[in-house]
Design a protein around this nucleic acid. Sequence first.
DNA 1: GGACGCTACTGGAACGTTCCAGGCCTTTTC
DNA 2: GAAAAGGCCTGGAACGTTCCAGTAGCGTCC
Lengths: 332, 332
Amino acid sequence: MSTPSRSAPTIVDVAREAGVSKSLVSLAIRGDAGVSDATRTRILDVADRLGYHSNALARGLVKGRTQVVGLLVSDLSNPYFADVVEGIEEDATATGLGTVIGHGRGSAEVLARRLDEMLDLGVDGVIVISAMLDAETLDRAAARRPLVMVGRPFDAPRRVSVVRNHDEHGAQAAVGHLLGLGHTRIVHVASSRRAAATARRSSYKETMRAAGLEPQVVEAADGGVSQALDLVARDGGPTACFAGNDRIGTALIHDALERRIDVPGAISVVGYDNSEVGRLVRPALTTVEQPREAMGREAMRLLLSRIDGDREVAEVTLEPRLVVRASTGTAR
Amino acid sequence: MSTPSRSAPTIVDVAREAGVSKSLVSLAIRGDAGVSDATRTRILDVADRLGYHSNALARGLVKGRTQVVGLLVSDLSNPYFADVVEGIEEDATATGLGTVIGHGRGSAEVLARRLDEMLDLGVDGVIVISAMLDAETLDRAAARRPLVMVGRPFDAPRRVSVVRNHDEHGAQAAVGHLLGLGHTRIVHVASSRRAAATARRSSYKETMRAAGLEPQVVEAADGGVSQALDLVARDGGPTACFAGNDRIGTALIHDALERRIDVPGAISVVGYDNSEVGRLVRPALTTVEQPREAMGREAMRLLLSRIDGDREVAEVTLEPRLVVRASTGTAR
DNA sequence: GGACGCTACTGGAACGTTCCAGGCCTTTTC
DNA sequence: GAAAAGGCCTGGAACGTTCCAGTAGCGTCC
């Protein structure tokens, strides 16, 4: 009967058992046309009976391709990543590519280690959904395999394709919405010094100035949420607030209600990202939505063209969309 | 100088450039003691200069080990998974193992495909954090590599180690808490027919009967949330509700408030899982917490012992913990 | 001064695939 | 009826490592 070996059966075991060469087993399993129907079914039967599974390591070694792409995220619990990954995997599956996800656990160092592991393991390409990695790390990785980044890099790395949302337009839409409701005193609680935050901040300022209004920015990192609410309580203080992201936006709503400041009666709040918390909080948060699944699909598209030999580095910007909910109302 | 080849340099390129045999390069890179200091630094310098990276496919092929374990989750956006993964990765990193995550996107079929891909890619073991896979799929996979499951399987598969929380004790704690607050009419909104839900349901019934009270169960799938609230509105209806999970618990709170039923004044609510939504909702949800990170660490421990040759299948049960918040109060 | 042992190194065989150049047959073609 | 073509199959080389059995050189020991 079959080999008594305890380790996994190989193509050679199947060949011996079926009475053919290992080459023919390889051809039969890959569905090559030049194998007669009779032999093919016999080989497949034997393979099935022995519990044969093709060894992807060996295949990857000789082919130089593993048909697997790596996805890198810095924080699993953030639903933003889940949506982008969804878009990517939809496309990947359709193209017959597998995906593995590496998790940075909020640390650039861990993320970089995962990136190296994946490249060593021979993934065909990598999509980084995180703004944590510095340009040098990205460039070094991109020298080994095609790499696409979703989000906004600190400094633009060469050799890396980028998919991002148009933060300037998003901020403009948020501020425009508040202006349309009659607000004139609008404060911005900025999220961080990263590229996306910087873009939102300067677009906010520009939009305000274009409307003939004075911008006013506080930093979330410096306790900006309570600073902003202090301002609101004051006479002639802001009647609306553009938060740099939904986390800040929901914090603003919670703290306002705790201080008995009505939302949106006394202050309107707009966030950015359309995360789940924003939908659940009461009043539900008006926010700007990044087209996350579309960004994922776009990233996969760029990666595929790079894998197929296209050497060109691309930068794609997708349009965000305002989602109006209950946290914004007409100016008091 | 170096080879003009465009493809990645191999150990042979390094050997030629350094004037030694490929075997010695291999030894030097792996830090073997039998290499003189002078040669070692020379070899490492050359490797660095050429941009050499060890090919994990080739290494895995000959060693039969890749030093990577696979993690399988069915839904990335569920923070439950993130916490378990956190516990697993903490341990894995400490042991020098890499991790890759496979994503089932809510479908058992996709999850099974990812499982196969990972096994083909030669992971040293797999941890499945999902109750979606049937016993047969699990068993087939476990025949190829060590497999540990976190959660409660439908039917107990042979050959698979299991880490789970003690749902019976958790339900007992929840009901006990309500009894302690003076409630006697407690309805249970059950979540599903899966193993964990079944255990919670029967433990609820048992605890009620042990206290000399009549259990009353409605199914969330049959609109149990509004059924339960209908009962509450009635005279002599329940004054407390044990929800099968936090999703149901938060839905209960939302809908109650919408119907102007006070929580916890008119009805106390307890959930299960301690998810983030439960913390954010107002009033914040009293719930039962599974020791997620500990479950992850335990799973990794079991997997490691299996990888190291231990053939024994284990089942570990960890104790849940009651988290009291604002959604429960004394009976009216 | 031969046996021994140590240190530092080497060459070739494995690992499980795919790829390539061919080798039979049988059938078709002129 | 010989040559060409096509269908089906085979053996060996490659992929980039690790592992194993040596080997050369050199000092040590009695």
